[in-house]
Structure formats: C-alpha cells, structure tokens
Design a protein around this nucleic acid. Structure first.
Length: 639
DNA sequence: GTAGGGTTAG
C-alpha cells in the first residue's frame, strides 16, 4: 500500500516535471534548477561514498533522462566496489549505457575493471568485445583478469592480440602478464619483449620478473634481474628474499635480508613472512623468536601468524606454537593444518587427532593437506584402523579425493605397522603411477622391518624415478654389502661414479646465542674442537656405563654415506649434541638440524644422552623429527 | 582507469 502510494507520488512529480519542461521558459528554468540540484545531490552522495542515497538519486535521474559526468560515475563505481555491491554496479552500468549519453573510454574501462573485480569474467569479456576502441588499459584489465583466473593461455593470447592491434603494452601490462608465464620458455620470450621496450627497470616489472623466475626455480636469472636494480623498492627486495626462502635456500634469504636492512629498508609483513620461512627451513629457533618480536606489530596478519606458527612447530618448540595458535583469533584452514601437522611431526599424534576433531567443530573445512597431517598422526601412533577410516571416508566427508600424498601416507602407515604386503598391495592398486615418495615410504618400512629383498626392489624403483638420489644409492650399496653381494656393490658405486653422484657429506648445525655452529662429519674446523672431542669421549665413556655400545653394524640405518672407516663417533650430530651440552645451560633443549637422515648409532647415542644428562634433545632431519627425552624418541625408532 | 612481494604436506 505504502509502496503503491510512493510510486504514485513519484509518477505525479515526474509527469508534472515532464509537462512543465515543455511548457514555458520559466518552468524550464525551474526544471534546470531541479536537475542541477538532483545532480548536486547525486555528486555529493557519490563522493561521500553514500551508496544508498547515490543509488536513489541515480534512480530519479534515470526517470528524468539526466546524466552526470563520467568522473562522478567513476566515483560511484568505486563506491560500489568498496561496498562489494555487485547488483548496484550493474544498475549503474545499465543507467550509463541506456540513454544517448556517451561514456568516455576511461569510464568504460572502469566498468570493465568493476566486472573483473567482481569476478564476472564473462560480463567483462562481453563489454570488452563491444568496446569500439580498446586502449592499453582495456587490454591490461582483461589480461590481468585472465591471470587471476589462472587462464594463462588466454592471458598470453591477449598479449599477442593487443600487439597485433598496435596497442603497446606498458609496465602495468607486463607486470600483470608475467604471472601467466607457465614455463621458462614463454617467460624468456616475454622478458625479451620487456627488455626491447626498455621496461625492465620499472620496479613493478622487476619484482614480477624476480618472482616468476624464482617460482620456476631459476634463481640465477632472478638474481640477475635483482642485481640490475637501480632504484630501491621494498617489494623488489621482498621478491628476491621470498624467492630464496621458497626455494629452500634460507641462508641466502637471510643474507639478503641483512643486506636489505643495511640498505635502509624496514621489513614489512611480507619480508617477515619470508624471513620466518627461512628460519623454519634452517630450524633457527633463536632467530625466529627474535623475528616474533617484530611480528607483534602485525597482530592481525593471518599469513604472518601462520608462518610464525609453522616456524615454532618446525623448530620443535611446541609450547610457543600452541601459544601462537591459541592467540590467533581468526584461524583459517592453514592455521589448523599447520598445528595438526606440527603436533604429529613432533610426536604428539593423539593431540593432533584431537585437534582435528576441534577443527571440524569450529566449522573450518579440512583440505587435502590437513588430511595428510591427520594420516601422518595415525601413522605415528600406530592407528592403522583410524588411518584407513580417514583415508576411506575423506571423499565422502570432506569431498577430497585421495591424492598421491595420501597414498604415500598410507604406505608409510602400513609399513610402519609391519604390514609390508598390504603396503605393497596399495602401491600396486593406487590410481596413480607410484612416485619416488611412495617407493621411499615402502623402502623405509623395509629398512625397519629388515626385509632385504623388498628393500632392494623398492630402492631400485626409487632410483628409476629419482636417479640422482645419493641416499638411496648408498642405502642400496649397503644392503648389498650386508648380503655379501660384492659385485652388486661395485655396480652401484660404478653407477654413482658414472652419474657423477657424490656422497653428500653429513652436516649438522646448532644455534647458540645467535651464533650458528656447523659441523661436518669428522669436522675439525670448529675453534673448540679439541674440547668437543674430549667431551665426546667422556660422554661415550659415561654412556658405556648405561649400556651404550657403538653400533658399527649400522648398515641398513646408515643413510649418511659415511663408510665404515669414517669413525661413527665423529658423526656431525654427535659433535653438535656435545657442543650443546657444553654451552647450553642445564634445562635448555638442545636443538639440532641435520641435512641427512640420522643413523642408528647416533639415534641410540641421542636417546641415552638425553636420559643420562636429563636433557631434551630435538634433532630434525630432512624428513622426520626426533624428540629425545628420558631415553625414548618420539619417532618410536622408526624413520 | 590498468600492475609487483608473504602461510600448511611429501
């Protein structure tokens, strides 16, 4: 009833205005005044970002056939974008295009951009197709849209089309289109184009180039682009630091971070996230904790907090991780997955599984990475049935198809439980071609459960898929040696020589008072090495009293590639443990990071030392975490 | 009016 009255009233006003418009000059002047005030109001509402009133004013203008200027409409679109008002945006589009009013090209570009921002790619494309003239902004908007939609081919095709139409791409176009380069080949082609038009020095283009080279693992070229930096820019620094951090070169990421600070730049959220990632990779808890202080400034940055959480988890500092996790108010799937995997990797399987239940209660949907963490937890707790349950129901409950990674987890789980036949069966039945990860999982199981025959088979499969893997070559050679198959040993060594595969030297490092102490096997370069050796002998002697016998039969467990003549007592982690005992105050956890898998003897050494010295020792190898406490290890002697 | 950098597994 009320609505009817309003529309009737509107009709009366409108018709009276229309009538008066064509009657007398005086009335026309009045109407002119009315239009002016309508326009005035409309303009004011647009600039005030008052969407509701602006839309009402536009409605009246529509009925009067009045149009504002393009700049005001542009303001209104900004207002729609700010409010996420899709329908209103469409109405403005209709209004502007409905009369005899001809919008300037920049306004059409703004509508184009609006559709892109609202994820309405089809509408954007249709508007683009109808544009009589398309300038560099129109093309760039479309290219950027296709990049965001990960339609790389389309984005690159548009770059060619625009060049054909004679429109020259600018720095906006190139910084956008670089994201679409999905191989080093097309990246180099686009890079050539950029150099040709002299846009390589633009900071936006430069950071995009560095980023995409790093994403394709070509750090050499990323550094080349970076080194030509003429003007400084934080994002360019962040691109190169992030590039190294993401490519597992934490050392170089941290070096660059120091250089960045010397160059006078203050780190922002993105820098700190990459620095934390570098700390995570290197297991540098002290440095990571120092970064935490700077993170406090960005309390609500979820990405940064997730990186911090992961750093504490991967550095084995679960108390800090839990504290960061509980203080994170708006947890997302990554926060939950990180914490679940962190607990599982550090040996707290039951807690991890409980947290998974809490996650579901909280309403956050697990993703495939979450499930990897859950299966990992089941595997470590020996929960074969629970593992099968999660694996079999993941599709039904969470809509996630089991991926290779999930199969590898299940192979690990079955293998760990000694069910080698079932593990092998799963490899054969999985709907994917088994990869090196799957075979390595089986190999790990064979190693622990001492199934030499299957171990040889699995190792060969790993080497078919990853022919350069030094660890597996050494392991295979050791298995043959153990079985007295000397011809086979010689064959493996020959293959390694031919393929130029060197034994990677074992290396461990420990952080003490901001200093990183690195040890290689049999290393004598450390300034305190004599004292360390004395202490090591002393510790071994004391351990002998509680039953420690150096395990020289470490064949199936020696992944170091350290031959028997290398005295196992000089394995790098032992040196690092001893330095930790000497330099870290009683009660402080000894945390060691190692580049290769820990050997059986060092594992036993760490277990007994932890018990004898009443210390917690955490050794993180490239795959597993080992928390030694009170004579036992969180890995359950399976690694 | 169009553009660049950061988080979870294996």
């Amino acid at each position: 009833m009320i609505l009817k009255s309003i529309s009737k009233l509107k009709w009366i006003i409108l018709s009276s205005l229309q009538r008066s418009y064509s009657v007398t000059p005086m009335a026309a002047r009045n109407t002119g005044k009315k239009s002016a005030s309508l326009l005035d109001n409309f303009t004011r509402f647009c600039y005030q970002r008052d969407l509701t009133r602006a839309m009402k004013a536009m409605d009246v203008m529509q009925r009067h056939g009045i149009n504002a200027d393009c700049i005001t409409y542009a303001e209104l679109i900004k207002c729609c974008l700010a409010h996420g008002a899709v329908e209103e945006g469409k109405l403005v589009h209709e209004h502007v295009f409905s009369g005899r009013f001809e919008p300037k090209r920049f306004l059409v570009n703004i509508f184009l951009n609006m559709y892109v921002k609202f994820n309405l790619l089809e509408e954007a494309q249709s508007l683009f197709d109808r544009m009589p003239e398309r300038d560099v902004v129109s093309w760039t908007t479309m290219i950027s849209a296709y990049c965001t939609a990960k339609m790389n081919d389309k984005a690159l095709e548009f770059l060619i089309l625009m060049l054909r139409e004679g429109v020259r791409p600018n720095m906006f176009t190139y910084s956008a289109v670089l994201r679409a380069c999905d191989s080093l080949v097309n990246l180099r082609q686009v890079h050539c184009g950029i150099i040709k038009v002299g846009l390589e020095s633009d900071v936006f283009v430069r950071s995009a180039l560095i980023d995409i080279y790093a994403k394709w693992g070509d750090l050499r070229n990323a550094v080349c682009v970076f080194n030509e930096m003429v003007t400084g820019d934080l994002v360019v620094w962040n691109s190169i630091i992030g590039g190294f951090a993401q490519n597992s070169d934490g050392d170089e990421a941290l070096n660059l971070f120091k250089r960045m600070k010397r160059a006078g730049f203050s780190p922002d959220q993105s820098t700190l996230t990459s620095v934390l990632r570098a700390c995570t990779g290197l297991a540098l808890l002290e440095l990571g904790t120092q970064v935490h202080v700077h993170v406090l400034k960005y309390d609500h940055d979820l990405i940064l907090n997730n990186a911090l959480l992961d750093m504490y988890c991967k550095c084995g500092s679960l108390e800090d991780a839990k504290s960061v996790f509980s203080r994170t108010e708006e947890k997302d799937v990554i926060s939950w997955s990180t914490m679940i995997a962190g607990l599982a990797q550090n040996g707290y399987s039951q807690e991890a599984l409980k947290l998974f239940e809490s996650m579901k209660v909280s309403g956050i949907k697990p993703n495939y990475i979450t499930i990897v963490g859950v299966l990992f937890a089941c595997s470590h707790a020996g929960l074969v049935e629970d593992g099968w349950h999660h694996f079999r129901s993941m599709k039904k409950l969470y809509g996630i198809d089991p991926a290779r990674e999930h199969y590898s987890c299940m192979i690990d789980l079955l293998g760990r439980a000694g069910k080698l036949d079932e593990a092998m069966q799963l490899i054969q039945e999985m709907p994917y071609e088994p990869d090196a990860v799957a075979w390595r999982a089986l190999l790990g199981a064979c190693k622990v459960h001492k199934n030499t025959e299957l171990a040889i088979y699995a190792a060969k499969q790993v080497l078919n898929l990853d022919p350069q893997d030094p660890g597996t070559h050494i392991l295979l050679s050791n298995i043959y040696a153990n079985s007295q198959k000397w011809d086979d040993v010689a064959e493996v060594r020959k293959t390694m020589r031919e393929r130029g595969i060197a034994k990677e030297p074992g290396c461990s490092w420990i952080e003490i008072n901001d200093e990183i102490h690195t040890f290689f096997v049999g290393d004598s370069s450390h300034p305190q090495i004599d004292e360390i050796n004395r202490q090591l002998k002393h510790t071994i002697h004391k351990l002998a009293g509680v039953g420690y016998v150096p395990d020289i039969n470490f064949v199936l467990h020696d992944l170091e590639g350290e031959q028997k003549e290398d005295l196992i007592q000089y394995h790098s982690e032992k040196l690092a443990i001893v330095l930790g005992l000497m330099r870290l105050t009683q009660g402080k956890t000894i945390r060691i990071r190692k580049n290769l898998r820990i050997c059986g003897d060092c594992h036993m050494f760490a277990k007994l030392t932890a018990k004898m010295e009443h210390r917690t020792i955490v050794i993180r190898d490239p795959i597993r975490y080992h928390h030694f406490q009170d004579g036992i290890c969180s890995c359950g002697d399976y690694w």
